[in-house]
Design a protein around this nucleic acid. Structure first.
Lengths: 91, 91
DNA sequence: AAAGTATTTAGATATTTGTCTAAATATTTA
DNA sequence: TAAATATTTAGACAAATATCTAAATACTTT
């Protein structure tokens, strides 16, 4: 668990888009290359690349170069920050 | 707990603003009138009214007229939806 | 080294968003 | 009922956002 909460602005900004939330849903199942992710949407590759960049800046995903591919993975530890934020509203 | 998840688009849209999240923080402590809420920010009353409208559309707050005042309250049951959404990412 | 594949960067554009001031509506008080 | 108070609605505008096409970069294969 993170000692200091990550920038909630960046996190909520990243989550405020249905396409980006769908990307997280995909990565929840398995790591995927940028191309594989783009193939799952009717959106251009540059647009998906931009969404991936926003998710990455929020630390919601990580990327690793593997040859000519870039493999994206979900970073669930950031979800813990959102969870903690929400729990401040319980009771 | 809600049987059907509320419109996550509206919820995340509402949460994607620092002022609106601060309003929720205020209402977490106690119910407040629109004017009291506005006084807590260096933002015009119409702008705060607009933020309250967005929070209300997301069901994150409720309002009740009391004479010439409109009293706003937090609706924490919607946070349960966000909680459930986040939990889909755990493990 | 040239061609092909994977991805991002750059630049443009239409839409959405947050803010403001001015005006309208609703309630209370003198 | 007129004046004061509380809040919202309307309309304008600048900034942010999501998208696109075209071009650039990086790696692999022949």
């Amino acid at each position: 668990m993170s000692k200091y909460l990550n920038d909630m602005n960046e996190i909520f900004k990243a989550l405020n888009d249905a396409t980006r939330r769908e990307i997280l849903d995909l990565l929840k199942e398995k790591d995927m290359s940028a191309g594989e992710i783009a193939d799952a949407f009717n959106i251009s590759k540059p647009s998906i690349s931009h969404h991936l960049d926003i998710l990455k800046r929020a630390d919601l995903i990580t990327s690793e170069k593997n040859g000519q591919f870039i493999i994206y993975s979900i970073n669930t530890t950031i979800m813990e920050d959102v969870l903690q934020w929400i729990l401040t509203f319980k009771q």
